[in-house]
């Protein structure tokens, strides 16, 4: 049957386009609900705390160890060329441009994306979403919109904190283990970092916040079939958000830095 491989490709493409279309329609509807009243401030506040405050320990730990490893690895590499003074530059630029937003994004995707998909998915299979509708409350407005806005606003704050902690991690290793002069290290750090390094990282963080909350909500909202469906939604939310974070990281880096 000569058409079979083509049929398989066609079927895959159609399924992909259908899924993408559904996701885009969901995202457009969700954005619409973010800007149209009523606004559920209480639900929004709860999400700010959930995404921002409770993610601080995991993001902070990731950042400090990343900064420390970066300083150590850079030193072992750069020492061969007597370029140890570039360590401060490598640490601060890598953290602010790339590692801060990407690692924080991936950690939050694991923590928040999974929990959103599981919570909304459970609400779906236990008819709680239907109950919201019967109480004249749009689930998109009550559940999805506050999460999206909180994600977009909170991730940059988390990344800003991660940047500071990451640079501090590099400083600890450079000064206390490698014997760098603290003042010189800090001076090199401040001279190396530019405003656009930090802002590009924060814009990335905002986009990642949108991706994480969108994938968490979408997969939870569209989950079907009881516990197994909720489990699948949780996995899909984390995997799809992680992949999209890495894709958009490249796209945004191109937009910001490609000359």
């Amino acid at each position: 049957m000569p058409m079979r491989p083509l049929q398989l490709v066609g079927s895959f493409v159609l399924t992909f386009l259908e899924s993408t279309g559904r996701l885009v329609l969901f995202a457009v509807a969700a954005i619409g609900h973010c800007v149209r009243p009523p606004f559920y401030w209480r639900s929004f506040g709860r999400q700010l705390i959930e995404i921002g405050y409770y993610s601080l320990p995991v993001v902070g730990l990731t950042a400090i160890f990343t900064g420390m490893v970066l300083a150590l690895q850079s030193y072992t590499g750069f020492a061969r060329f007597s370029a140890e003074s570039a360590i401060a530059t490598v640490v601060v630029v890598s953290i602010t441009r790339e590692l801060g937003p990407v690692l924080a994004g991936l950690m939050v995707a694991g923590r928040i994306g999974a929990s959103m998909a599981a919570e909304i998915g459970t609400m779906r299979v236990t008819e709680q979403l239907d109950a919201l509708t019967t109480l004249s409350t749009n689930p998109m407005k009550y559940l999805v919109a506050p999460r999206l806005v909180a994600g977009v606003l909170t991730l940059p704050l988390l990344v800003l904190i991660a940047d500071i902690i990451g640079v501090f991690g590099g400083y600890l290793v450079a000064v206390y283990k490698l014997g760098f002069n603290p003042a010189t290290y800090l001076q090199n750090t401040f001279e190396a970092v530019k405003v656009e390094d930090v802002t590009s990282g924060l814009v990335k963080a905002s986009v990642f916040g949108f991706i994480i909350t969108l994938m968490g909500c979408y997969n939870g909202y569209t989950s079907r079939g009881g516990a197994q469906g909720v489990g699948a939604a949780t996995t899909n939310a984390v995997v799809s958000a992680s992949i999209l974070i890495l894709c958009f990281d490249y796209i945004l880096t191109e937009l910001f830095f490609a000359r």
């Binding site: 459970t122 709680q128 239907d130 109950a131 509708t133």
Partner: peptide, 15 residues
Amino acid sequence: NRKFGMLFQGSALFD
């Protein structure tokens, strides 16, 4: 839907 009240089979209370 403001005219309706609904009792769900599994109660569907918000946990």
